[in-house]
Deep mutational scan, measured.
Amino acid sequence: MTTFKLIINGKTLKGEITIEAVDAAEKEKIFKQYANDNGIDGEWTYDDATKTFTVTE
């Protein structure tokens, strides 16, 4: 398992979430669903070196 981080830079929601997953593709799906469930629609980036997804509205 690898630890992945999501950084949220939303208009109404900001924060960080850290979760373990098998791979980045699995985690991306979970993070995007979390963002969608919380009304966050923005630009996504991924840094493989730090295993960090960022979504910015």
Rank of each mutant, 00 (worst) to 15 (best):
A35E: 01
D23L: 05
I8A: 00
Q33R: 07
T18G: 03
I17R: 03
A24C: 15
D47R: 00
N36E: 13
N38E: 03
N9C: 15
E26H: 08
K5H: 13
K11L: 12
I40G: 01
T3Q: 08
D47E: 03
G10V: 09
Y34M: 09
K14R: 08
D47W: 02
K14S: 07
I17Q: 01
A21M: 13
K29T: 09
I8R: 00
G39S: 05
I30G: 02
K11N: 09
V55G: 01
Q33P: 00
L6I: 15
N38C: 14
L13K: 06
N36H: 14
A49C: 09
V55H: 02
K32L: 13
T50M: 03
T3R: 11
I17M: 04
E57L: 15
N38R: 13
N9H: 06
E16W: 13
T18S: 07
E16C: 15
L6T: 00
K5A: 03
D37C: 14
T45N: 04
I7F: 05
M1L: 11
K32C: 15
E57G: 08
T50G: 01
N38W: 15
V22P: 12
Y34I: 13
Y34K: 00
E28S: 06
K51D: 07
A21L: 14
W44M: 03
E43D: 11
G10M: 13
L13S: 06
I7G: 00
L13R: 05
V55W: 12
E57N: 08
E26C: 12
G42Q: 04
A24H: 12
T56R: 04
D41C: 14
T52D: 01
I7Q: 02
E43Y: 12
D23N: 08
D48F: 07
N38V: 12
I19F: 15
E20S: 12
E28R: 05
G39D: 05
Y46A: 00
F53C: 15
D41E: 12
F31N: 02
G42D: 01
G10S: 10
E26Y: 09
Y46P: 00
K14M: 12
G42F: 12
E28I: 14
F4S: 05
N9R: 08
G39N: 10
G15S: 12
T2S: 07
T18W: 14
K27Y: 15
E26Q: 08
T2Y: 15
G10N: 04
N36S: 13
G39A: 08
E43P: 04
Q33M: 09
N9K: 07
T54Q: 03
K5T: 13
K27Q: 15
K29G: 06
M1D: 05
L6W: 09
K5V: 12
F31L: 08
W44G: 00
I8E: 00
M1P: 09
I17F: 13
D47V: 03
Q33Y: 04
T2R: 06
A49E: 07
G42L: 10
D48L: 05
M1R: 12
T12K: 08
V55T: 02
D41T: 13
T45V: 06
K32G: 04
T18A: 06
N36F: 13
E16A: 09
T54V: 05
E57V: 14
K11H: 10
F4Q: 06
I30Y: 11
Y34F: 14
K14E: 08
T52M: 03
I19Q: 02
G15V: 15
A49F: 08
T52H: 03
E57W: 14
A35F: 12
Y34W: 15
K29R: 10
M1F: 10
A24V: 13
K29E: 10
I8L: 07
D37T: 10
K27C: 15
T3S: 10
L13M: 12
G15N: 07
W44Q: 00
I40R: 01
K14W: 14
E57D: 09
V22A: 11
K32N: 07
E28M: 14
T54D: 01
W44L: 02
E28A: 07
A35G: 02
A35Q: 03
A49K: 07
E57M: 14
E43G: 04
G15H: 13
